[in-house]
Design a protein around this nucleic acid. Structure first.
Length: 910
DNA sequence: GCAATCACG
DNA sequence: ACGTACGTGATTGCT
């Protein structure tokens, strides 16, 4: 016999939080509510022996109840962070239990449970609902019992319909009427003022429902009559609010919530991280799970000793910190040469907290340094004071190694505050990226979890997010920073071994780590941008745009927001009746591809295309870039992110300087605003020629492709010759264009459909092209087959420098998902190796400029291009040097080649 | 906060 | 038969 147990997660964790005394693990993570929840859960599982369990949560967003009544749940104290940080912890723990959990945006836990009890009623399954909320009594039925917590959470009181009758004299559904009349202060449901439980029950015993009470106000007397009549609407609305919605669109049913019992190892691991020692003993999980060395366990359990350096009164503490740092270093030196010690050589963990996504504008609110279990937290103000000079010296000293987290951001944020940072030798965020570049959240709390270390609070739980972001009180903040610095040190130890195991140590220490400093220097340098030039372009665009807008309105016969795809779709496809070519999941598609096909149908279409292109230039490139220019210097400082792209490329933010227009002349003019920062200097730009196809020639070993590059032929023309079987002279522009598209397709992991779309030909024709290509370039075909097979076998692919990307989807049964992974397997080694190469060139170039004491500066990287500013007297040298360094970055079986151009601005450097 | 669109390699 | 090209970031409108 099945038995379902449905738990109101929010209600129970709240009650557990307030019922339990404070409790934290050694990392300062609050665990009392999770502990309370767990003890209750264990008791229920033992007593009830359910076959199916679900814990439902409120989704953090507004629900449909707010639509009619915005004050719903208003006036509530906001959840204390000591509790909110426990939500993700509880969810993680429930996963370890193997218990299903569910939340759905727009609905509350009540509604989810209400919907499931309805399913239970229909299929006559015995069901127990666990909650602290009496409202839910309305769900009780022949098959459904609602258990309400008592005395905190140590006991529950089950209510069957009979028990509700006995206690309240009501049927389950009349609980809604009860709430309608008496309201509920905790949810800010008003009810009828002055009517409490007693009066409400009396009325319901006489009339049965809110509606009937309101219909018989005559038989009430005096003040009560007045009140009820005055608040009729409130009563009706309150009843509505108290009604649990039982039609939630769930994608969970009996199969998804089945509970098969927990696995000892998983639960033991989860309890260990939370340091629930009593529960480990009680459930006899002591020997279950792996959980790291004994030493590590002891380390993790040891309470951190936190010393705060907030002002000059703490000068002694600061001295102790520096003593500790140099002491650890001395110990390390004496052990040098002992390979076994190498992995333990991490002397400390260093963490800088900088608030804000853009490091050039981020505010440093503190830093922490962990030396073993002793952690020093330094307040932001203290760092700048005179007594902290020795600390600033340590920060600036390139010979004092630092083991940190996102030291790239730290360097920039500190730099803008006049604090020099040097000497980063290991960065756990950067290492984590190499170990898995598709990991989207490279956070310390996530990494601690992954390595099975002491669980630490997520930043979001400590600070909140979006509009609710707040820096907590000093004590909470210091604790959090201390915990993070300690985590850095522990994580780093694991990662050194992991990097070595995956063959990425060299990639890390000789490429990515040095590159991070090179990037920071480029970003701090910035590039000069002439606002006057952008403003000139802006006013020209402004004039054109207003003319085009009025033309568009004239053709449409109405004014509308052209930027709104919804409104534009209505105009094009309903008002003007143009044929629908493509749909998006929300409506008509109006993208450039569709509009280009619609051009012959109506004069408005080309105008819209023109409007779109100019509006893009105006908003993103003129207005957007103007906002990013620093008034003091006239420079733009982008931020290159080294831990985002799955292939190993960089990305650029605030603003993105890797997508400045170039393909169309109107847009290309934006580049005129990018100028040297010193009079008489030049902008010099060098780009790799066909780097991805050269890389492909190398890794595939395809003789024909290699030969083409050894001869330095025009690769698209050569491809056309070989695919079409013609001479160079016979290749017309159309053939070359097709060959170029095929080459692109090859790099992306080709499909006949993709190529047919790109070339506007049939799939069959595209398929024939591809077949012909592979016939000629058989080495490439073999590479494509082999790399997919290799990905299937290893679960990952690598670049020439051993950069790795995991492809779990390569074995998916879904054709689409699997195909995507296969194309990724083909593309990543190519795109990734090209990224490796230009990164090598950047590190070399930086060294070269330094060694030769040149004044020229590297400013930008655009995937296959490097941009410099160069004084006149170095121009001739740099024209040689840059392409030479770029071409020599890595030795391949085909030559690498870089072209160089220069001019008085970026536009002219073509 | 997400979807659609478009800028780049 | 399935329905796609690979990798990014910024802006806008809308829920």
């Amino acid at each position: 016999m099945d038995k379902w147990m449905l738990i109101d997660g929010n209600s129970i964790i709240y009650r557990a939080f307030f019922a339990m005394p404070p409790l934290t693990n050694s990392a300062g993570l609050h665990t009392n509510a999770v502990f309370g929840f767990t003890t209750m859960l264990l008791k229920l599982l033992a007593d009830e022996k359910p076959t199916h369990v679900l814990v439902a949560f409120d989704a953090g967003k507004a629900t449909f109840r707010h639509e009619g009544y915005t004050e719903y749940k208003g006036g509530r104290e906001k959840t204390p962070t000591e509790l909110s940080e426990q939500f993700p912890v509880l969810k993680e723990l429930l996963s370890a239990f193997g218990i299903a959990q569910y939340e759905l945006s727009g609905y509350e836990a009540d509604d989810i449970i209400g919907t499931l009890t309805k399913m239970a009623d229909e299929s006559k399954v015995e069901t127990l609902v666990i909650t602290g909320d009496k409202d839910m009594l309305q769900l009780a039925s022949e098959h459904v019992t609602v258990a309400i917590t008592r005395k905190g959470i140590s006991e529950v009181e089950p209510y069957s319909p009979a028990a509700i009758q006995e206690r309240y004299g009501l049927k389950p559904l009349q609980i809604i009427d009860l709430k309608g009349l008496m309201g509920d202060a905790s949810d800010n449901i008003p009810g009828i003022p002055g009517v409490g439980e007693k009066t409400a029950l009396k009325m319901l015993h006489e009339f049965g429902s809110v509606e009937e009470v309101l219909a018989h106000t005559d038989s009430l007397k005096g003040k009560m009559k007045e009140k009820v009549e005055e608040h009729k609407e409130s009563a009706i609305m309150s009843k509505k609010l108290a009604t649990i919605y039982r039609e939630v669109p769930l994608d969970k049913g009996a199969d998804e919530i089945r509970y098969a019992g927990y696995e000892d190892a998983a639960l033991a691991e989860a309890f260990r991280k939370l340091e629930f020692k009593s529960l480990i003993e009680r459930l006899d999980l002591g020997s279950a799970g792996s959980g790291g060395s004994e030493k590590e366990a002891a380390e993790a359990a040891a309470e951190l000793k936190v010393a705060v350096i907030a002002g000059e009164d703490d000068a002694d503490t600061l001295r102790a910190l520096l003593d500790d740092l140099s002491g650890e270093e001395a110990a390390k030196k004496s052990a040098e040469g002992d390979a076994a010690v190498e992995a333990d050589a991490i002397s400390h963990g260093f963490y800088v907290e900088a608030i804000g996504d853009n490091p050039h504008h981020a505010e440093v609110i503190g830093m922490a340094i962990a030396v073993g279990e002793q952690v020093y937290v330094i307040a932001a103000d203290a760092v700048k004071q005179p007594f902290a000079e020795p600390l600033r010296k340590w920060l600036a000293d390139a010979d004092k190694p630092k083991y940190g987290f996102d030291t790239h951001k730290a360097e920039l944020a500190l730099g803008w505050n006049g604090i020099v940072f040097n000497g980063a030798v290991f960065d756990v965020q950067l290492a984590a990226y190499l170990l898995d570049p598709t990991d989207a959240s490279l956070t310390l709390s996530g990494m601690s979890q992954r390595y099975g270390l002491t669980a630490i609070a997520a930043d979001e739980a400590v600070y909140g997010k979006g509009a609710k972001f707040r820096v907590p009180d000093a004590e909470t903040l210091n604790r959090h920073l201390a915990v993070k610095a300690a985590a850095v040190q522990r994580i780093a130890k694991h990662q050194q071994g992991d990097l070595e195991k995956s063959g990425m140590s060299k990639l890390y220490y000789e490429l990515e780590q040095p590159l991070s400093r090179v990037l920071a220097a480029m970003e701090q340098q910035g590039i000069q941008v002439e606002s006057a030039e952008l403003e000139r372009l802006g006013s020209e665009l402004e004039r054109n745009l207003s003319q085009i807008m009025s033309d568009i309105y004239r053709h449409a016969g109405m004014e509308f927001n052209i930027n709104s795809t919804k409104q534009l779709g209505d105009v094009l496809f309903e008002k003007l009746g143009l044929p629908v070519m493509k749909k998006t999941k929300t409506g008509y598609s109006t993208d450039a591809e569709v509009l280009e096909r619609l051009e012959p149908y109506h004069e408005i279409v080309p105008l819209i295309l023109l409007y779109r292109s100019l509006a893009k230039l105006q908003s993103t490139y003129v207005e957007g870039l103007l906002k990013e220019i620093r008034q003091e210097t006239g420079k733009i400082h982008t931020y290159y992110r080294q831990t985002i792209a799955a292939t190993g490329r960089l990305s650029s933010q605030f603003p993105n300087l890797q997508n400045i227009p170039i393909r169309l002349e109107e847009g290309r003019k934006i580049r005129k605003a990018f100028v040297p920062s010193e009079p008489g200097w030049y902008i010099l730009a060098a780009d790799y020629s066909q780097i991805e196809l050269r890389v492909l020639a190398h890794i595939s070993g395809d003789e024909r492709l290699k030969e083409a590059f050894i001869q330095d032929m025009d690769i698209h023309t050569k491809t056309a010759m070989d695919v079409f079987g013609v001479t160079a002279e016979q290749v017309d522009s159309n053939m070359r264009r097709s060959a170029k598209a095929v080459n692109f397709g090859i790099v992306y992991g080709i499909s006949d459909f993709g190529l047919s779309q790109n070339l506007n030909i049939t799939r069959k024709e595209a398929g024939a092209f591809i077949a012909q290509y592979f016939e000629v370039f058989q080495g490439v075909r073999k590479y494509m087959d082999d790399i997919v097979a290799q990905a299937r076998q290893d679960g990952y692919v690598t670049t020439l420098l051993e950069r790795r990307r995991y492809l779990p989807d390569i074995k998916a049964s879904n054709f689409n998902i699997r195909s995507f992974a296969e194309r990724t397997a083909m593309n990543t080694p190519i795109q990734g190796t090209a990224a490796d190469i230009i990164k090598l060139a950047m590190v070399r170039m930086d060294e070269t400029l330094r060694e030769r004491k040149l004044k020229s500066r590297m400013l930008l990287q655009v995937h296959d291009e490097l941009v410099f500013e160069v004084p006149e007297d170095e121009l001739e040298l740099m024209k040689e040097l840059v392409p030479t360094v770029m071409a020599g970055a890595l030795k391949l079986d085909v030559p690498l080649k870089a072209d160089v151009n220069y001019g008085v601005n970026w536009y002219e450097a073509k």
